[in-house]
Design a protein around this nucleic acid. Sequence first.
DNA 1: TTTAAAAATACAATCGATTGTATTTTGTTT
DNA 2: AAACAAAATACAATCGATTGTATTTTTAAA
Lengths: 340, 340
Amino acid sequence: MKNNNVTIHDISKALEIDSSTVSRALNNSPRVSQKTKDKIISKANELGYQRNSLASKLRTNKTHSIGVIVPRISRHFFSSAIAGIEETAYDAGYDVIICQSLDDYEREKKLMNTMLSNRVDGVLISISMKTTEHDHFKEYQKQGLPILFFDRPCALANSTNVIIDDFKIGKEVTEHLIEQGCKDIVHFSGPQTSQLYQQRTKGFKAALEKHQLPFREEYVFESSLMKEDGIEMAKKILALPKVDGVVSSNDTSAISAMQHLKENGIRIPQDIAFVGFSNEPVSAVFEPSLTTVKQPDFEMGKIAASLLFEQIKSEGNLRINQTKILEPELIIRNSSRKKS
Amino acid sequence: MKNNNVTIHDISKALEIDSSTVSRALNNSPRVSQKTKDKIISKANELGYQRNSLASKLRTNKTHSIGVIVPRISRHFFSSAIAGIEETAYDAGYDVIICQSLDDYEREKKLMNTMLSNRVDGVLISISMKTTEHDHFKEYQKQGLPILFFDRPCALANSTNVIIDDFKIGKEVTEHLIEQGCKDIVHFSGPQTSQLYQQRTKGFKAALEKHQLPFREEYVFESSLMKEDGIEMAKKILALPKVDGVVSSNDTSAISAMQHLKENGIRIPQDIAFVGFSNEPVSAVFEPSLTTVKQPDFEMGKIAASLLFEQIKSEGNLRINQTKILEPELIIRNSSRKKS
DNA sequence: TTTAAAAATACAATCGATTGTATTTTGTTT
DNA sequence: AAACAAAATACAATCGATTGTATTTTTAAA
C-alpha cells in the first residue's frame, strides 16, 4: 500500500502553476485571482489533496493545537471540562491533544515533553496529585509558551490559575453540616501535597473554629480518595468514639464509605450526615442521594481555554500571573438533611 | 516572548560538528563514535534541546501517532477503552490523539480530515450513531492508512472490527429475564441505524421466539438512550397493559426509567425486572443495583490498539478484513432477581 | 500607442530533521 | 612507511508548505 499523498507540487505540475500560487490559492490569499483559485481548488478536490499540516506547522511555527493534560479522563469533572475546552478550541480553530497523567508525576513530565516536541501553542493542565516540583513546567516555559492550570492550582511564577475558592467552599460545606446539627465531624482529605486539598482542609478547620467546635487531628483522614480508601475510612469511623458527620473531598470515597457504613447498620443522614465533592453522576442516584459541590466544570473548561487563547494571541505581552476564581454550587440532597 | 527553540543546527554550530552527525548522535546511530555522542548529548542538554517532531515526522513520513475517535470520552466504556489503547500505545512508543465526535456525523467527518492532515499512522474509531455513510472513511483509506472499528462495527471493506457478539449477548440477557419468569418484556433499543443496536434487538427477538413468547412491535422503543429518553420510555411503559421486564440497550436510560417507575410505585424487580448494558459505575450503586453487561472495555482497547499496530507495521501486507469478537460478561444484580 | 500603476504569478529561500553518498580520519597489516 | 579497509564525519538533497521579493501580465490613464 503505497503512500499516495497529494502535495501542492502535484497540483502545481498538473496545472503548470507555481506551487507558491497554489499555496496562496488554497489559503484564499487576495494575491491570487478568482479564476486561478477556482482552477486550483477544483484540481485539488479532483486529486484528493489534503494539506500536510506537519509541513505547514513546521514552516509557520504555529501548530494551532493546544495540549490538555488531566489526571484521568474518566472522571466526570474532567471530561466535562474537556468538553468545554473542546468547544472553545473548535470555535477558535484549534486542535486539542488530550492526555492523561494518571496522577503519575513521571508520566506528567513525559507528557510535557511530548507537548514541547509536538510544538503545541499552549497547555492546559490539571496537575497530578503527586506533583510537588515544577521543573518540567519551567523547562516548558523557557520555550516562551503559555501554560494555564485549572482546577488544581499551581504556585508557578508567570502562570494563570483557573480555580474555585476551595477554602471558601470547604468552609461552606462544613458549616452546612454544623447547621444540620453535626458536632463530631470527620474530614476525608486528599493528599496534602495538593494546594486544593490543603485549602479545603483549611476551610473545614475554619468552620469548626467559627462555631467553637474542636478540631481533632484524628478526625482528619488523608488518602487518595479512591473507592477502597472510602471503605478504609468507613472502618476508621466505626472505630472512633463519636461521629455524626463527614465532609469528604470527593464523591467517590464518600459513596463507598456510606455503602460500607450502611452495611454496618449506620443510618444516613440520621446517624452520620455526609457531604461530598464534585457532583459525580452517581451521587444523585445513590440512596440517600449525596449532598455535594458542583464545580463549574464545563464553564471552567471554556474559561480556561479562552484565557489560554488570549495569551497565545498576545504572544507574551499580557499580564499572565493571574488567578481566576469561579463559583461552585452546593447541592443539598438527602445525605445531609437532618432537619427537614 | 521570543521563540528560542534550540535546533540541531545550534548544537552543530556550538560544537563545529555537522548537523547530520548531530542528528545521528541524538538518534544513537552506530555511525557516530561514543565520544562525539557524549559531547553532543551533553551540549544538547545544556542548551535545552527538544527535538522538533514536526520536522522529524515530515521528513520520515512516520508520525508515530494514532488517532482515536469516540462519541464521548465521558462514557465509562470509552474512557476505559481509551485507557487500554493508551497503555498499548505507550509501550509501542506511539502518541495518541483523542477526539470526540459527540455522535455527530459532520463532526466525525471533520475529525477524519484532521487525522489525515495530521498524518496519523492509523485510526481507531467507534463510529457515531448517526453515521450511515462511509465516504469519509474511504477517502481516508485512499491514503493507504489503516482504520479499525471497535465497539460499534462498520461494514466498510478492508477494515477490521473489534466487537462483542451483540446478537448473542442480546439474546442472553433476554433469556435471563425469561428464566426469572418475565413474559411481557419491553426492549429499549438504540438507533437502528447502528449495526450494534440492530444486533441486540435481533437477539432480543430470537430469545422471545425460542421461548415461544410473542414479539410485539409496540414493546420495542427506539431512542438515543439518553437520560430523558429513559423517562419518556418509563411513561410509555406505564401506558402499556402489561409489562414485567425491560431489556435496555444501555444503563443510563434503564436507570432513569427505573427512577421514574419507582416514583410511580412500581417495585423493581418484583413488578418489573430490569437489565441494562455497559456496566456504568452508577449501575452498581443504584438501588436496586442494576443487572447489566460488562463489556471488556479496557481489554478491547488493548486488543484494538495492538491489531492496529500490527497493520501499521505490516504496511498493508496483511489480511485486514477481519472481525475480532470478544466475550462480554453478564453481571446479575438485584434489578433482575425475581427468584432467589 | 505608450507608459505607469496595479494585479497576478513565478522564483527561491526557509522551517528542522533525516539520510544516501562522498570524503576524511583512524587503525591495521605488511 | 605504504596501502588499504574500516570507522567517523561532512556534504547536500529532501520532506511539503509558506512567504518575501522579483518578474510578468493586465488594466487604465495619458
